[in-house]
Design a protein around this nucleic acid. Structure first.
Lengths: 351, 351
DNA sequence: AGAAAATCCTATAACGATTTAGATTGGTCT
DNA sequence: AGACCAATCTAAATCGTTATAGGATTTTCT
């Protein structure tokens, strides 16, 4: 809101639209062409049963011919439906690669539907509730997709209370009651520990994401359970600052190593943290695949190649995006159906 | 308003809005509260000069008090203005990290303005013109931001012809006539070659992006000029398939090395290609910083650390996003002003 | 055959904003 | 005093779409 900057209102250059608009065809255009009334055209295109099949076909044909597309503003004004799905993202976390993939796969999932994605970023210096409240109050989207979910995420509580359509990428303690997609990080951590056990590793370090995230808790629990069951030592490095997470992760690991703790297995979450781990370990004189193993989620092929013995567990982010898009649309269009939910089972990839 | 248990018609899901909406205040609300007419309120908020200052202040106060925000659909329907800036992105290129940063910085640049970003992805299997044409024809955004620019990019030609507001991230042969932000890749390549010369390197390889991109041409020219001026050997590896660019780049370099060509300096563009180069070089027995040097754009800190002697040239993507956002808004709001343009000068970072 | 029902469509109104033209007031000028 | 003007506001129309109520015609029933 500019309160000082006063736009030129004193008869200055007005917003003359770039002249000579071909003008998009409207329902009126079709009405004129077919000799029908505007509402009839609307209902015909909507497939209403009280319009004869013949008329419906004729209208449809004309509409296709002249390339009619409904005016979004008209629809939105009349129905309150925006045909917009908002993907709410923090701009301050380091897993950007993951984020970008998510964005494009959500967009892909909305292809050939009337829905669009918008990115609603929020910034580290503001309340995460703010963008959510804004979208809901101004109804500038039909549904929200949230990530970075906390167990008792206040955004989720708010949206459930408001009965506003949404999907989470990750779970809350109310997981039964809302749509979500999640990767089973509990299982991932267990698998990782098992892999280490199979390689006779004894002292595992889990480089955990910020502890307030649900998936961090899941990983810690999974790893803890598996380690105690298999009799391995486990250290959880956490409490890193999320804004510069990757560097912090590397640092935390380095400090741990420098303190003289034995380490022969490291679990990490992302490409970035994996790179950080490699650096820290090699600096400390380790050799990946020999004196130590790394188990990482979603290591990109290139990372695999640089230090090939990295144990990799794939996370299908593309699929997540498609699902989230679908689930968001379902939440809007069929709100009484049970929420769409999916838990992705981690799979060790052939290496 | 609330109808209960009434059978909905054929397949049409009942669009019963989630009950009990607080209902956003409108101009009508303010009109009722102030005893003025709706258009008066509108003009008062717009700061029209034929509304008394006292009334303007009063209306403003009431609007702020009840938290009035203009209904986007209403504005859009009436004025044709969407308040949307569309960021057009390919989903199939590998520089995702770069992309994600761009998205968030454009979003940051639009913060506290009435504009929003939407991501308009296009897919490898479709005409890049398609999304652009769609946006323009349906007027679903006020301006476009394009990247992956080609010298005679048909999208730019189209937009200039249509007189539709846009900004490019990169330049065309018509650069004088449209707003753009670009990183000076010509200078970057020259700097890289100079750095190699200063280190007594003789045989440089430029791992170039697809040749149809403007910035690829700029790099090739810059490197070629500097190499011939300084008497260094230069090989350009290009013609890689863009969809799996990074792997291809690594492969091309490996093949070049395997063929027995001497190489003691490699120029690469992104984090990904840098990683690929490291892999290829080390596989061939090279030691970075000893038998060979790498000069990369935008190497992330972590990459710096893993092979610290990498020569880095910084590209300020965050700044690019802010500028693009600004330029897009200017193109919409002040179309007669000269186009905003900026060429970022590369700077070697302290290592 | 007359009434009831089914079929197919139209007219009107409304969503929230802005634009254009016009109405009301008070004051000024000649 | 009558006319003119500036200042300030209101009325009506409009953007494109859809919901609701109703109208006209044909078909079906008793």
């Amino acid at each position: 809101m500019t309160k000082t900057g006063k736009p030129s209102k004193t008869g200055a250059s007005d917003s003359a639209r770039p002249a000579a608009q071909p003008k998009q065809p409207t329902l009126k255009t079709i009405a004129g062409l077919t000799g029908l009334a505007v509402p009839t055209v609307s209902r015909a295109l909507g497939g209403a049963s009280d319009i004869s099949i013949a008329t419906r076909a004729r209208v449809r044909a004309v509409a296709d011919e002249i390339g009619y597309v409904p005016n979004r503003a008209g629809v939105r004004l009349r129905t309150g439906r925006t045909n917009v799905i908002s993907l709410v993202l923090s701009t301050e976390h380091e897993m950007m690669n993951h984020t970008a993939k998510l964005i494009s796969s959500v967009a892909a999932g909305l292809r050939a539907t009337p829905f669009h994605v918008i990115i609603t970023p929020y910034f580290g210096d503001e309340d995460p509730m703010k963008p959510v409240r804004y979208i809901v109050e101004t109804r500038s989207a039909d549904a929200l997709i949230l990530n970075q979910i906390k167990p008792e995420d206040p955004r989720v509580a708010y949206l459930m209370e408001k009965n506003f359509p949404f999907v989470t990428h990750g779970r809350t303690i109310w997981e039964k009651d809302h749509p979500f997609y999640d990767f089973d990080n509990h299982a991932f951590a267990q698998i990782a520990v098992q892999e280490f056990a199979a390689r006779q590793r004894k002292n595992i370090v889990l480089v955990a994401p910020p502890r307030d995230q649900t998936y961090s808790v899941a990983m810690i629990n999974g790893a803890t359970e598996a380690a105690s069951r298999l009799g391995l030592g486990l250290t959880v490095l956490s409490d890193v600052h999320s804004d510069v997470a990757i560097d912090d992760m590397g640092l935390a690991l380095s400090q741990h190593l420098d303190a003289g703790h034995p380490v022969d297995g490291v679990i990490c979450v992302s490409n970035g943290s994996c790179l950080a781990a490699i650096t820290a370990l090699e600096t400390a004189g380790h050799v990946i695949g020999d004196t130590v193993d790394i188990c990482a989620k979603e290591a990109m092929p290139i990372l695999q190649r640089i230090r090939s013995p990295i144990i990799t567990v794939r996370e299908n982010v593309a699929n997540a995006g498609l699902f989230l898009a679908q689930a968001a649309m379902s939440a809007v269009l069929t709100p009484r159906e049970p929420p769409m939910q999916f838990l992705e089972v981690p799979q060790t990839s052939e290496n």
